[in-house]
Design a protein around this nucleic acid. Structure first.
Lengths: 212, 212, 212, 212
DNA sequence: CATGAATGAGGTTTCATTCAT
DNA sequence: GATGAATGAAACCTCATTCAT
């Protein structure tokens, strides 16, 4: 039996890269691109600052790497959602619920996207990888809407892209702007009860719209 | 009468403050709080940097001043919208349209809010002024919903706060995340036609929900 | 008698700039552009490092400022040399002597030029000021050569630019490459006697060439 | 015979060393000692950076190795020049021409020497090898001058070392300072015509000096 | 013989802020 | 009310070099 061809220590490189990426994700999502500090990322990752540049080139490229991973994560989660196996009404319900819970459990997704949008998507535009990662949900939603219409349940003329964006909107905005909304309305909009009410409202609204 | 009671000098001070505030609004909305540069604000305002500190204390306080003005502006615009004079369906239609166009024409409102939310609304929380400036639209919307229900047009059980947030959501998110959405979908979602389609979809969706 | 319109303290700015420039001249001439350290310049000038960027923008621009000053200095020294008032032979002798002594007493001129040439004159090319500062000596030398020829002393067909460059060459190279030459020849070519012999040889060579 | 006494592996080592040396020569001559980057040398040589340290110790020693090779190269070229077989006038002409063309075709020689002189020949001083490599041309030039004098062609009292340095000067300076000279005179002094004129002038000047 | 991973020190530059008038 | 001069701290990034295999 020969010794394994790839020495076991070699994986430290991957590990270091992953540690850096995780720390960077944390930092960027907490402070945005401009507010993030490479020093803090290095410290939190427990690696030398120089190593970050060794692996990722510079702050911008590191941000892009984080962004790509974030998108890969949500796309993977979306893959696990099998809308095609559900009846139309249930599928819409599940889509709203999934979107809501994903954003709720991944606040970093929201802050990263906000930061990227502030900078007019400069990083994302130069990423070939992300542009290939179109969400499968748009197509799945189109199918669901078709089925619902054929069953005489859903209304005509609903644009799946618009609806997809609207569903994302109502989930995303409530969470991304939670701090200012809470301050203005003078209540804690992240209290468990408030969250439950929100999900209930959103589901009702979307179904109220698509159902005949 | 020779000399006016309020000396013209005072005007200059007001003017300087206003110039600074306008420049700061521009800078903060372009780069976010962390990315904004006091130097650039001074340069664009055409005043000495020191003057900014003289009038506004520091960068944080300046940001708060900008935020307060921004909220004051939108509240003023909202005041001009007389939903109570319209029939319920038209009122809902107008509310969506107003929200949409206000965000569209005031992109700085969006970026400022995003920046503030990234920092958990630290500035806003310490502002008594803003917290008093509750939007009048929530109450007006509540009235509209009541009227619509009484006329047998609208469904029961629609929470005006939730609906208000949802209307804001669908307008805001489409614009705030326009850059990443455009990149991912591979189209220009700010093209005039796309904007018109969006407004049409949103109106349909909200009405589709509230109407019986 | 009114008080002077320009407050006396204002000149501190000029003084700081000059101190920085002098320190930079020293540093760049000692270590070349790449080897020079902004930190050391600040330290030697006794000013905050930030001030260097406040006044000069960046390292490249600072280098250019030094270069411009250096050229201004030598041009000023050249102005003081009145070749037109001398007989042709004496004028040539003086030109060689002046060039030699200027380089000898301004070693920084040599190292700065070497550094700039290493980088293909990138700084100099973007300087409008320097390109206007053509050396007056070329024209003066042309006149001297003309007069010498008319007096039947000098040979025909001597190109003043070529001769000017050659005179500069024999003075400059001996000094700029003194260290390696000394090492190779195993003698101290900067010893007073060696310097005197060099000047004597150069004068002889140039005169030997131009004289009929 | 199966295996050669000198194993082929050794060849690889030599080859690696040579590749590194060539890449280093290129880098140092382009950027000077301080501006040169060990990373770039490794990249251009196509070898691991560690290998450079394995073979050459450190950046300074690598520079010295480059310098030694450069001197060895020019000495070898000088060896091929047989001034003793020519008549004196032709010999002087050839010496100027050789020097000129060698510098012209080996710009790296110039930049390396400039870099070394900037640092007061620190590397060269500690190299026993280079100091032994005295140029054979000085002695050959002395012989030529003697022969010319004996034939009644050349003047008395010409110091061969001084003349050797002067010939080097007029060739070297024109090329080493070409960038700044071109910038100041506003012409391209490296254009083919300009180069031909320069050689012609130099030959004329040296001969004009040594001939009676 | 050769290499990918890793680093401490230090490089240029930028930042919000204050000093002195 | 207004300003040019000045700064300490810290930002991003780079460098020659070494570690561990």
């Amino acid at each position: 039996m020969a010794s394994s061809p790839s020495p076991p220590r070699l994986r430290d490189a991957d590990k270091s890269q992953l540690t850096i990426l995780t720390a960077a994700l944390d930092e960027f999502s907490q402070f945005g691109f401009a507010g993030a500090r490479v020093d803090r990322i290095a410290e939190q990752a427990g690696v030398n600052k120089r190593l970050i540049y060794y692996y990722f080139g510079n702050k911008d490229d590191l941000f892009l790497a984080v962004l790509e991973r974030t998108y890969a994560d949500i796309r993977a989660a979306e893959q696990a959602l099998h809308l095609d196996a559900m009846d139309p009404v249930e599928a819409v319900r599940q889509l709203v619920s999934f979107t809501w819970h994903y954003y709720l459990e991944h606040p970093e997704f929201i802050t990263l996207l906000n930061s990227e949008n502030l900078h007019q998507a400069v990083h994302l535009k130069q990423s070939a990888r992300i542009q290939e990662m179109n969400s499968p949900l748009v197509q799945l939603l189109a199918d669901v809407l078709d089925r619902g219409r054929q069953q005489g349940l859903f209304r005509d003329g609903v644009d799946p892209i618009q609806l997809y964006i609207s569903i994302a909107s109502i989930c995303y905005f409530y969470l991304s702007n939670n701090a200012t909304l809470s301050a203005i309305f003078g209540r804690d909009l992240k209290a468990p009860k408030a969250l439950a009410q929100r999900l209930s409202h959103m589901t009702e609204m979307v179904l109220g719209y698509v159902l005949r």
